[in-house]
Design a protein around this nucleic acid. Structure first.
Lengths: 242, 242
DNA sequence: TTAAATACATAACATTTGTTATATATTTGT
DNA sequence: ACAAATATATAACAAATGTTATGTATTTAA
């Protein structure tokens, strides 16, 4: 890799952030009273696996912060096939784009497992934005950052071959899923969802996973994927073409 | 296609807008006096082919509206290769993301030919946003729309094969380049840029172009590409996989 | 708990795309 | 206008990915 010396970890952290919406940091840096104001309008909800948090074309009612579980954000192409472009997890905040722009949702979001979320109703959230200018500023900043993330994903899909894409997303997802937890959880997505995310078919994904297992890069248990040699996976990212 | 009857044109217009930033409409719907305020702070500039309007990581100084010529917006992947994700043309406004979020540029923009632009300095533009709330609202709305465009591009790159991607981008670009002009101009990009945009190599792009010519879908003159049978190209979009 | 449904693994073959190489055309700078 | 540099076209072969098919494992619902 580029920097194998002292700041390798910093480098990877910075690297991951290029592909991470970082919407889990949205409510950080608030004062005690601001934070209290946010907490006050949060309504805990449970959302069943397979339910939609929101639909493309739907009218926004509020925003969500995930407290437990995972959700996929996707859009349907013009031929109707679903394309996942982000997997949200614990602490991530979502649904604010449409709200800020006072428009309809541009995409859909579905619970991948039973979800615990905190919901903030539209009016409450808009009021918070008025009361806490720093929050509004941070939100707009983050949308800019997310824009860059999507552009980076475009570059990866257009330029990298399947093994490189898989290696990248495995590293990203493990990093994201284990953000706040010391115990390594593994990557637990259906093969269909993972294939959809990296832009290939489940059969072809299976072929790549098999190669990775044979090389000792990963291990699997049921559908769970555990990274065993992240350095080798990172090497794969250097592969040039598609 | 889906709707071959009376609203086919409306359908295609709507279809194209899913892939178009529509930043040419940003200064529409202003009152006479608002428009005058905008015109007053615009400074006409000429930018040479190959020059950068801005750089990834650079500090924003203002925004641009292109009055003549084309520019490419791109980002470098982590291995350094350029990935074009948008081609701007006449009337398009660009450079406002970083400004609004008070952050650095997330991407780079380069003139593809000699450009005539109108420049609005940062302070002037921020003042305009304050004076014209409708403009600020429209801007935020448009960023939301652009977000959806990038997601759609991701879906295309991940799901469509090369011929379908080429067909789509040819249709999009012709539509965009001939937006305000009755005379058909053809698509005039280097093979490298076009290949980069659709996510393939120039050699492979050449193969697809040859096929399209043999089928009578397009004609070429020098590097210029003219669409001859847009219906057949639209058929290609229906092709499922990559 | 069991049967049905769904998800997963794998292989063989077809197709698409990448790569390398060479020749021709076009543009640029003097 | 000319030479040099750059861009384009094309072909043959290699590699990657899509597709179809079949069997096994796992999950779900009764």
């Amino acid at each position: 890799m580029y920097l194998i010396n002292k700041c390798y970890i910093c480098f990877m952290k910075d690297f991951f952030s290029q592909f991470d919406f970082q919407s889990n940091l949205l409510f950080e840096d608030l004062t005690e009273s601001e934070n209290q104001a946010v907490q006050n309008v949060m309504e805990p909800l449970v959302i069943k696996k397979g339910s939609m948090l929101f639909y493309e074309g739907g009218i926004p009612t509020g925003i969500y912060q995930i407290k437990q579980g995972k959700a996929k954000k996707f859009k349907r192409g013009f031929s109707g096939e679903e394309q996942i472009f982000y997997i949200y997890t614990q602490e991530d905040v979502l649904g604010y784009h449409a709200l800020l722009g006072q428009e309809r949702y541009q995409d859909s979001c579905e619970a991948l497992e039973d979800l615990k979320v905190n919901f903030i109703a539209k009016e409450d959230f808009l009021r918070l934005l008025n009361e806490i200018p720093a929050l509004q500023q941070k939100l707009i900043k983050n949308i800019g950052h997310e824009f860059g993330v999507l552009a980076n994903i475009i570059a990866v899909l257009a330029q990298k071959n399947q093994n490189a894409r898989l290696a990248l997303f495995l590293l990203l997802l493990e990093n994201r899923f284990n953000r706040n937890s010391p115990i390594v959880k593994g990557i637990d997505l259906t093969r269909d969802d993972l294939a959809n995310l990296i832009g290939t078919s489940p059969e072809s994904l299976g072929r790549s996973l098999k190669q990775f297992k044979e090389q000792g890069y990963i291990e699997t248990d049921k559908r769970n994927i555990y990274i065993k040699d992240s350095l080798q996976l990172e090497q794969l990212l250097q592969v040039k073409t598609d």
